[in-house]
Every structure is written in structure tokens, then in C-alpha cells.
């Protein structure tokens, strides 16, 4: 999170998955130093395999980096779970240690690391920026801006800060760079969209004519709206994600399938199942509210424009165990 203050774009606040906000919430075993929990032999192997000695990264520093990452992610387990030694070893071996060491060395200003970084990632980063922006000019600007940030041209409290500090080796470094570029681009678009004059801004919402004319919606429409809200809130995360991606974002089945790395037919089948469950749940909710089964089924044929339901708003209500909850803590 440190880079957010360093960069000038000021993206939305980001948190680490499974990040524990306070030390009190961590299991006691995690507070032990890493070298007390991980055998020296294993730590040496990881240190050697990562190539850390080539960048002048000492063993103790390497151990601290691993400990910081393991603490932040609780070894990839759910918050509060106590990892076994096997789980700890598996977690460390699952990290992209070579990329992690390179990123840390670059963040520390190691010239050799920067040379290797530019040699390996300069062209892919530029291509990714052009692909994200859809324009070579904008892509070069975006890539150049990120290079400046990565090099740590921005400073806080007199200390150079680099976004590479936040890389934890969960995925590849190139993927992290692409995601960071995408974050910068999306944040830039969202910020500049708000700055558009009202005459040029696309009208994203038009009030439904029927609802506007009718004034106060009928009791049936209110009940239907509540039933839809209740059914959507009961959907699991994957179901809500599919609904949002397909119906709100207008993504194709292929795009969703690529993101989830499943077959396109699987996405189609899951979407059909989710919509079927949603329909049944709406009918159940309507029956619970006192409507007969026949009337509940007939209510499903209501013109959606007559409903005062903001699906975007409903789908953006996260379940209580996600990031808002952690921020509240």
C-alpha cells in the first residue's frame, strides 16, 4: 500500500488479501521469526534458488521479506488459521522467488537488477501498455510514467518509494506489471470521466418513464423489488460475479471464461444455473411476502423498467467478509 502515496495518481485504497490489520489478530506462531520456524536448510535453499546473492540481498534480509509476505497472507490460508510446517513450506515454494528478489533488488536501487529488469521487461511492458490504452502514444506515456514510479522518483519522508515494494511474488512479475498498468489506466479514466463537462458526459441513466409517471410504485412492485434484492444478496460470490460481468459489464462468455480459466460452455452453464436459482429465489421471496405462487410467477413477467431496483447498487454490496470488513477493523 505504500506506493499509493508515492504515486501521483492516487488510486483507490488497496489492501492485501488476507491482510491482518493488527498484530493481535495473528496467531502466536506467526509472530515467531521465520528462521525459528523454517529450517535453516530450507531457508538457505530458497535463498540460493531465488538468486538473491547475485543482487546482494543478504540471507537475513531475504528472510525478513519472506516473513513479511507470509504474515500478510497468513501463508495463503484463511484468516486465523494456524499453518502447519508443511503448509508453510508449500507456501514459500509457491512464491515466485526469482521475480520477488528482482523486484526487491530494483526497489533497493540495485543497478544490476535494474539492468536485468529493463532487459527482460521493457518491451513486454511497453506492449502491454499499448494494448491496455489502445494507443501507442498513450501506451508509451503510461509505460513511461510507470517506469518513473518503479524507479522511485517519488519520495515520502525523504525516502524513495517504489511500487515494486508491494510485489509479493504471488503471481508473475510481468503479470503484476500489467495489472499495475491496468490499474493506472482505469483510475485515470475514472478520474478524467468525472471531470468531463456535463454536456459531453454520456447519459448513463435515464429514469424509467413508467415509474416516473406512476409516481409511487405499487405494493406489488415494491415487494418484487425487495424479492430481487434479497435473491441477489443470497447469491454466492461466483454467481454475483458472473451476473455482474455478463449483464452489467456486457462481457462475453469467452472473456469471462478466459478470466476464470474455464471453458466457455462452463460459464454458460453456470450462468444458466445462477439465473434459474435467482428466479426460484425471487418466487420464494414473493411467496414469503404473502403473494400466492401463481401471482409470484406472474410477477416475474413485470417490465423491469417499472422496478425501482438498482442492480449495480445491489451487486456492489459486498458480503461482510471482504475488504470493507477488514477496513472497519
Amino acid at each position: 500500500m505504500a506506493y499509493r502515496e508515492g504515486v501521483g495518481i492516487a488510486p483507490s485504497q488497496s489492501v492485501e488479501v488476507n491482510a491482518a490489520p493488527g498484530a493481535a489478530s495473528l496467531p502466536e506462531a506467526i509472530h515467531e521469526p521465520l528462521h525459528d520456524r523454517l529450517p535453516d536448510r530450507s531457508l538457505d535453499e530458497l535463498w540460493q534458488e531465488s538468486g538473491a546473492p547475485a543482487y546482494g540481498l543478504q540471507r537475513e534480509e531475504f528472510s525478513e521479506i519472506l516473513e513479511r509476505i507470509a504474515t500478510a497472507r497468513n501463508f495463503g490460508l484463511a484468516a486465523g488459521a494456524i499453518p502447519s510446517p508443511q503448509q508453510q513450506a508449500g507456501f514459500f515454494h509457491s512464491l515466485r522467488l526469482a521475480d520477488l528478489v528482482l523486484a526487491q533488488a530494483c526497489a533497493n536501487g540495485h543497478e544490476g537488477a535494474w539492468g536485468h529488469f529493463l532487459e527482460v521487461y521493457q518491451q513486454p511492458l511497453l506492449r502491454a501498455a499499448i494494448a491496455i490504452t489502445g494507443s501507442e502514444t498513450l501506451g508509451r506515456d503510461l509505460a513511461g510514467q510507470l517506469y518513473a514510479e518503479l524507479y522511485g522518483l517519488t519520495a515520502r519522508d525523504g525516502v524513495r518509494r517504489s511500487p515494486l515494494d508491494s510485489y509479493k511474488g504471488t503471481g508473475s512479475l510481468l503479470g503484476w506489471l500489467r495489472t499495475t498498468l491496468a490499474q493506472r489506466h482505469v483510475d485515470h479514466l475514472r478520474r478524467t470521466r468525472r471531470e468531463l463537462p456535463l454536456d459531453d458526459a454520456p447519459s448513463g441513466f435515464e429514469p424509467p418513464a413508467a415509474a416516473a409517471e406512476a409516481g409511487t410504485p405499487s405494493a406489488e412492485l415494491l415487494a418484487l423489488g425487495k424479492a430481487v434484492e434479497g435473491a441477489l444478496e443470497r447469491q454466492p460470490a461466483e454467481g454475483r460475479f458472473l451476473l455482474a460481468a455478463y449483464y452489467l459489464d456486457g462481457r462475453t462468455l469467452l472473456e469471462i471464461a478466459r478470466l476464470l480459466q474455464v471453458h466457455e460452455a462452463t460459464v454458460s452453464r453456470r450462468l444458466r444455473r445462477v439465473t434459474g436459482e435467482l428466479r426460484k429465489q425471487i418466487v420464494r421471496n414473493l411467496e414469503t411476502s404473502g403473494m400466492s405462487k401463481q401471482a409470484a410467477r406472474e410477477a416475474l413477467g413485470t417490465d423491469p423498467r417499472d422496478l425501482d431496483v438498482n442492480l449495480t447498487k445491489i451487486l456492489q454490496i459486498s458480503p461482510p467478509d471482504t475488504f470493507q470488513e477488514k477496513a472497519a477493523q
Binding site: 488497496s14 488479501v17 508491494s166 504471488t170 495489472t179 475488504f323 470493507q324
Partner: peptide, 11 residues
């Protein structure tokens, strides 16, 4: 949504 996963988690 005020809090987002970091780039490492999204990637």
C-alpha cells in the same frame, strides 16, 4: 467500494 485488492492479488 473504497478498498481494493492490490495489484499482486488481482494478478
Amino acid at each position: 467500494i473504497e478498498l481494493h485488492p492490490d495489484a499482486d492479488s488481482l494478478n
